[in-house]
Deep mutational scan, measured.
Amino acid sequence: TFVEFNGKKVEYPTPEAAEKAAKKLAKKLNLKVTKKNGNYKLE
């Protein structure tokens, strides 16, 4: 499962880990999380 932000793509071993990381990053970077095709994107 990938988390995409600032043009970077980071892969996580589980969807749970990706979701957790996405939410944490979104909060830190003041972005919102969108889920697309099972992957997460911060914008």
Rank of each mutant, 00 (worst) to 15 (best):
K23M: 14
K36M: 14
N6Y: 13
N39Q: 08
E11L: 15
K35Y: 14
K41Q: 14
K27V: 08
K20H: 12
K23L: 14
F5P: 01
G38M: 04
K35W: 11
A22I: 07
E19M: 10
Y40K: 03
K24W: 15
A18S: 01
E43R: 05
A17G: 07
K23S: 09
V33A: 04
L31P: 01
E19G: 07
P13W: 06
P13A: 11
K27R: 11
A26D: 02
K27F: 09
L29E: 04
L42Y: 03
N39P: 00
E16P: 03
K27W: 07
P13K: 10
N6D: 10
V3Q: 00
K35S: 08
P13F: 06
G38L: 04
N37Y: 06
F2P: 00
V10E: 07
V33M: 10
N37D: 15
F2L: 07
Y40N: 03
T1N: 12
K35I: 15
Y12I: 01
A22E: 00
F5V: 08
K8T: 11
A17P: 01
A26P: 00
K41G: 06
A21G: 05
K32H: 10
E19V: 06
L42G: 02
K41Y: 15
V3A: 00
L29D: 03
K23W: 12
K9H: 08
T1M: 07
N30A: 07
V10F: 14
P15I: 09
K8F: 13
Y40R: 03
N39F: 09
L31D: 02
K32R: 11
A21P: 00
K24Q: 13
E11D: 07
T1Y: 15
K36F: 14
G38Y: 03
P13I: 05
G38K: 05
K36T: 14
K32S: 10
E19Q: 09
K20V: 11
K9I: 13
T1C: 15
E11H: 15
N30F: 08
V3H: 00
K9C: 15
T34F: 09
N30D: 08
V10N: 06
G38C: 07
K20I: 11
F5T: 03
Y12V: 00
L25A: 05
K20D: 10
E16G: 09
Y40C: 07
V3I: 08
N37K: 06
P13Y: 07
V3G: 00
N30G: 15
K36S: 14
N39D: 13
F2K: 04
A21Q: 05
A18N: 00
F2R: 04
K28L: 14
A22N: 00
A22P: 01
T34W: 05
L31N: 01
K32E: 07
K41M: 15
V10R: 13
G38Q: 05
P15E: 11
E16W: 07
L29W: 13
N6L: 15
N39I: 14
G38N: 09
E4T: 06
K28E: 13
A21M: 08
K20Y: 10
V3R: 00
F5D: 00
T34S: 08
F5M: 07
F2V: 09
A18E: 00
G7I: 00
T34R: 07
E43D: 08
G38H: 05
K23E: 11
K35T: 10
A17C: 12
E4D: 05
F2M: 07
Y40F: 13
L25P: 00
Y12T: 00
V33K: 01
E4A: 03
Y40V: 05
A18H: 00
A17H: 08
L29S: 03
K35Q: 11
V10Y: 15
E11I: 14
V3F: 05
Y12N: 00
E11S: 14
K23Y: 15
A22W: 01
E11M: 15
T34G: 05
Y40T: 04
G7A: 03
A18D: 00
V3S: 00
L42M: 04
T14G: 05
K24A: 14
T1G: 07
E11Q: 13
K20E: 13
T34N: 08
L25C: 11
L31S: 03
G7E: 05
N30M: 07
P13L: 09
K23P: 00
L29T: 04
T1E: 02
N37V: 03
L29Y: 15
T34D: 05
A17I: 10
A22G: 01
L29V: 03
N39M: 11
P15H: 08
E11W: 15
N30C: 15
P13D: 10
K9Q: 09
K41T: 15
A21H: 05
K8C: 15
N37A: 08
K35P: 04
V10T: 10
K24Y: 15
K24F: 14
K32Q: 09
L42A: 02
E16Y: 08
K32C: 14
F2G: 03
V33W: 07
E43L: 09
V3W: 01
G38W: 01
L31A: 05
K41E: 13
N6R: 11
L25E: 01
K41F: 15
E16N: 08
E4I: 10
K32W: 05
F2N: 04
K36V: 15
P15Q: 12
K23Q: 12
A26Q: 03
G7S: 05
K27C: 14
N39A: 09
K32Y: 07
P15Y: 05
P13G: 08
A21I: 06
K36E: 15
L25H: 02
T14Y: 06
K23V: 12
E16L: 09
P15W: 10
Y12L: 02
K8A: 09
L31F: 04
K41P: 02
L25R: 01
L42N: 02
L25S: 01
L42H: 03
K32F: 06
L42I: 12
G38D: 06
A18W: 00
K35G: 06
N37W: 04
A18F: 01
P13R: 10
K20A: 12
F2C: 11
E4V: 06
V33T: 03
K23I: 13
K35A: 07
L25I: 10
N39C: 14
P13T: 08
E4Q: 06
L29K: 05
K32G: 05
E16Q: 12
K27E: 12
T14K: 02
K23F: 13
N39S: 11
N6M: 15
K35E: 10
A22C: 07
K41R: 10
A18P: 00
K36L: 15
K36G: 08
N37H: 07
V3E: 01
K24M: 13
V33L: 12
K35V: 14
L31C: 10
N30R: 10
E43G: 06
T1W: 15
T14D: 07
F5K: 01
L29G: 04
E11F: 15
T34L: 09
G7M: 04
V10Q: 09
K32P: 04
N30K: 10
K24P: 00
E19D: 07
K35H: 10
K24N: 12
K20L: 11
A22S: 04
P13E: 08
L42Q: 01
F2I: 11
F5C: 09
E43N: 06
K8P: 01
L31W: 03
T14I: 03
F2H: 06
A17Q: 10
V10D: 04
K20N: 10
V10C: 14
E4G: 01
K27P: 01
P13V: 06
K32T: 13
A21W: 07
L42E: 03
F5A: 04
F5I: 09
K24E: 14
T14A: 03
F5N: 02
E11P: 10
E4L: 06
K28Q: 12
E16T: 08
Y12W: 05
K8L: 12
K24D: 13
K28N: 09
K36A: 13
A22Q: 00
Y40I: 12
G38R: 05
K9W: 12
T14N: 10
A22H: 01
K9Y: 12
N30P: 02
K28C: 14
E16S: 09
A18V: 00
T1P: 09
A21R: 04
K24R: 14
L42W: 02
V3K: 00
K41W: 15
K27Y: 09
K28F: 11
K35L: 14
E43C: 13
N6F: 14
G38A: 04
T34C: 08
E4W: 07
P13S: 11
N6S: 07
E4Y: 09
V33E: 01
P15G: 07
K9R: 14
Y12H: 03
K27I: 11
A18Q: 01
L29M: 10
N30L: 06
Y12D: 00
K23R: 13
N30Q: 10
K41N: 11
E19H: 11
K41D: 06
V10I: 13
K24I: 14
A18T: 02
N30E: 07
K20F: 10
K20G: 06
V3T: 01
Y40E: 03
N37I: 02
K27A: 12
L42K: 02
T14M: 03
K8G: 06
T34I: 13
K28G: 06
V3N: 01
E43A: 08
E43W: 10
A17E: 12
E11A: 12
K20W: 09
V10L: 12
V33S: 02
P13N: 08
K20P: 00
E4R: 01
K41V: 15
